[in-house]
């Protein structure tokens, strides 16, 4: 097993080390007994409605948050036991939005990805610049290198943040709603980019999204989450059915294979009674 989550529970505001996590009214949101596995080189989607715990789950996998119960393990080793720098050499995160407090250039933003590979007070050398340059090329952002990050469009920013994550040279890339707030053309472009990186570089990806069609187009496997619990998990073609969409979102949907796109498509019809 490459990446596993075993019976993890988490509650915001709860003190660490608490034995029992309760859910219910008046409680901050919790993930409750979530388990799943991610195969090496796969592209796994975390699907679910807004506020179901997708982002929390990504933060738990990235080691930014610690589960109150259960473990997240990378190749059998709990991420809580992996020193932060070592973990950052293997796992990179693309957050939903990035708002730097200062006006960094695109190249500066991307080269920050080298941080876990550099020693104390060590500056980037020619190798680091080459890796950064390759990440810019892979995301089609080389021409933006000298631009201030703040002046970019939403799609350009997202590609630059992905380039920064690639500069970490991670084996695992965690992406939080990578196409939210992007228009159709950019959505397709990011999807193609992720698919290419997964195929060519063998980067294992975990992708949190509420976009069912994006998940259908990209992901080999899905984990469906509702109210902090796993509703279903498995191969995309097995899990993504109209029955599951109804149970996940409370929406009647037409789910069928779509010849021109080569994947399952989901067309929402009405709210389920």
């Amino acid at each position: 097993m490459f990446l596993t989550a075993e019976h993890i529970s988490f509650q915001y505001g709860a003190p660490p080390g608490r034995s029992r996590v309760r859910t219910g009214e008046g409680r901050a949101f919790a993930l409750d007994d979530v388990s799943f596995t991610v195969e090496r080189g796969s592209l796994t989607g975390l699907l679910g409605p807004n506020g179901c715990g997708k982002t929390t789950l990504l933060k738990l996998i990235a080691g930014v948050l610690r589960p109150h119960q259960g473990t997240v393990a990378l190749e059998g080793r709990s991420v809580a036991d992996i020193p932060r720098r070592q973990l950052a050499q293997r796992v990179a995160v693309v957050p939903q939005e990035t708002h730097p407090a200062f006006d960094y250039t695109v190249l500066e933003m991307v080269l920050m990805g080298r941080h876990p590979h550099l020693g104390l007070l060590q500056l980037e050398g020619p190798d680091d610049l080459r890796i950064g340059g390759e990440a810019l090329a892979a995301t089609g952002t080389t021409h933006l290198a000298a631009r201030p990050y703040m002046t970019l469009s939403g799609g350009e920013k997202q590609r630059v943040v992905i380039a920064g994550a690639l500069t970490q040279q991670p084996g695992v890339l965690l992406l939080d709603e990578p196409t939210a707030s992007l228009d159709l053309a950019f959505q397709l472009e990011i999807a193609a980019l992720l698919s290419r990186l997964n195929r060519d570089r063998g980067v294992t990806m975990v992708l949190a999204t509420h976009d069912l069609n994006l998940a259908a187009a990209l992901c080999d496997a899905l984990v469906l989450i509702r109210d902090g619990r796993v509703l279903a998990r498995g191969a995309t073609r097995d899990v993504l059915t109209s029955d599951m969409v109804r149970r996940l979102y409370g929406v009647e949907a037409d789910v069928r294979f779509h010849e021109p796109s080569g994947h399952v498509t989901v067309v929402p019809v009405r709210r389920a009674p």
Binding site: K59, A88, Q89, P100, M109, M112, H115
Partner: peptide, 15 residues
């Protein structure tokens, strides 16, 4: 540099 981008961004880059 990384902290000024965000605490989560810094944490996931090994800070």
């Amino acid at each position: 540099n990384l902290l000024s981008v965000g605490t989560d961004a810094a944490a996931t880059r090994g800070v």
